[in-house]
Write a protein that binds this DNA or RNA. Structure first.
Lengths: 317, 317
DNA sequence: TAAATTTGCGTAACTGGTTACGTAATTAAT
DNA sequence: ATTAATTACGTAACCAGTTACGCAAATTTA
């Protein structure tokens, strides 16, 4: 147990499994004690059948919370022992209606005594324990039903990553990063074009001096993401969101989202009403991100970029 | 869940298993979220190795509470991925010393972030729950360690069976039962002898009128066990415990023990100091019972019974 | 009424663990 | 110095569940 104390509650799964094993391991012995020739795994099926005379395989599976092949196997074993009988449904040839045989019902009577004693034993343990396992399980089932562990972990990750990400204004020292991060992804998926070089080689002249902005994302102090807001001369849009790039090192750390969120805030604070962007549908994570931020697809506009096959806009009002 | 509410806490095992499944099912996804190429089942091994540079298969198994073949399999999988390396111990050729490879250590660093988030997520669930699962598991582990479920159930069964058993004095109406129960086991394991017929055909004249006693055990009102105390003329012993018989129908219901206990009390109340009995070692449950009651083996005495190969006495002072 | 979809369920293959067993290396006992 | 017992650990077979798949019957849709 020392191991699990040290490792923390991450081990809750392993620990649950071990307790389950411990609670379960005696089951076979207990049946022997009552001279009941039955396998522990048959019990749920058995019990369900005592409650309701007849049930099909699928009904049984649903009732006891197993998959149907599991029930199918159990039934074929119980059939061999003669505890149940099967009966093809006359009106629906697919259904295999299972019921307890005479022999099965006799066993089921013997089981009742056992149930009483096992229940009493478990109640005894419960009474000796300060913390209520039964109720705790119920609560956990409910809480996990509401929000899965995966979702909870995802949220925690976002929170933690967010705290590590700092979004700052572009300074001339970032020019190298701004260029290299963009070259990296563009040349990975497409090829660099004329307009790329213009913006990347001279962000000061091409973007900032024209009334645009650039933000830089620091992760643990290192610049791992960049994003630009380019002033547009078109009457419809105020800015184009462009040259967004996140280092593979920071992938999955929510950097893109935080960066985009920040740049949208920036645009808002500058009184912008509509933002435009161009992208390509093979960049699925990017498209998803834009979608999540509220961008909507718009019909084709003229563009200098060959790689553009989708255009989107975000209305800020 | 309805099923389990209805069936009662007997289902604690199934319920634990389901919760375990639920907690565990997301594990693989969570690793993916962190871009860690690892199987959930490797985690305990991984973790144990980050804690202590080197460990043998068996040490790992002990540390994480698995069987050694399980660890053996996991290691061979991790080996294939290049996360660990093995090293035959120079001084002990049997030992296979495992340690993390460079690649393994890199993964282990990535794991740390994940651990933080998973722990946070689980703490969040814990905080939302009123009942403390973690502590409850700890208590159950302790309580089951102290006394296994099997032993607890056995005790409950004895209690319940005991309450159903009533020990009464022999009356003439019991002669038939007294005879038939004894004939049943004697002729099953041995053959009836002259002395048997004397006692069984005329318990009144042969046992009671000579200062002996007979007790009858009723189970649910039915006479299913008998036991006699025969007055002895020998200077050493006061009574012989004999003609104890329990119906197979009442087997495992503690009837024998209660009957013997009662007959010993009877002897005590009559001022007896020493009880004697004869038996045969092939009757193992009977010998165990006598032993449990405090009877000790004594060297051979003259006996009319061919089937006797062990003699025992109980000192009542 | 024919075609497409859904449902019931059996079989097969997989999974993450176990116990059983065999073998080689080491240690203890005579 | 043997012999016997113990230990480390790999392989095989099993176990109680699962998912994947396919077939046939029933139901829905066109």
């Amino acid at each position: 147990m020392g191991f699990f104390d040290e490792i923390g509650k991450v081990a809750i799964g392993s620990r649950l499994r071990m307790l389950t094993d411990k609670v379960t391991e005696d089951a076979a012995q207990i049946y022997k004690l009552y001279h009941i020739d039955m396998q522990p795994k048959w019990f749920p099926v058995f019990y369900a059948l005592t409650r309701q005379r007849e049930k099909t395989i699928t009904e049984l599976a649903k009732a006891i919370g197993h998959s149907h092949p599991s029930v199918s196997k159990i039934i074929s074993e119980m059939l061999k022992k003669g505890y149940v009988k099967e009966n093809k449904d006359k009106t629906d040839g697919r259904r295999n209606v299972i019921s307890l045989s005479k022999k099965g019902m006799k066993i089921s009577a013997a089981l009742e005594d056992q149930l009483i004693d096992v229940n009493a034993a478990i109640e005894e343990i419960s009474a000796q324990a300060q913390h209520k396992l039964w109720e705790a399980i119920g609560e956990w089932e409910f809480l996990l039903e509401q929000k899965s562990l995966l979702r909870r972990v995802t949220e925690k990750k976002k929170e933690r990553d967010g705290a590590n990400v700092e979004i700052i204004d572009y300074k001339s020292e970032h020019q190298e990063v701004f260029r290299s991060l963009n070259v990296e992804w563009i040349s990975k998926y497409f090829t660099m074009e004329e307009s790329d070089y213009k913006a990347l080689d001279d962000p000061q002249g091409y973007i900032l001096d024209n009334g645009g902005f650039i933000l830089v994302a620091l992760y643990g102090g290192e610049a791992l993401g960049v994003c630009a807001l380019i002033k547009m001369n078109d009457g419809e849009y105020d800015f184009e969101l462009a040259k967004m790039a996140v280092s593979p090192k920071a992938q999955g750390k929510n950097v893109g989202f935080l960066l985009a969120k920040a740049i949208i805030e920036k645009a808002k604070s500058l009184g912008a009403a509509k933002i435009y962007l161009e992208s390509n549908t093979i960049l699925k994570p990017a498209i998803n991100l834009y979608h999540k931020l509220g961008f909507q697809k718009v019909p084709g506009k003229p563009t200098p970029y060959a790689r553009c096959n989708i255009q989107m806009e975000l209305n800020l009002n």
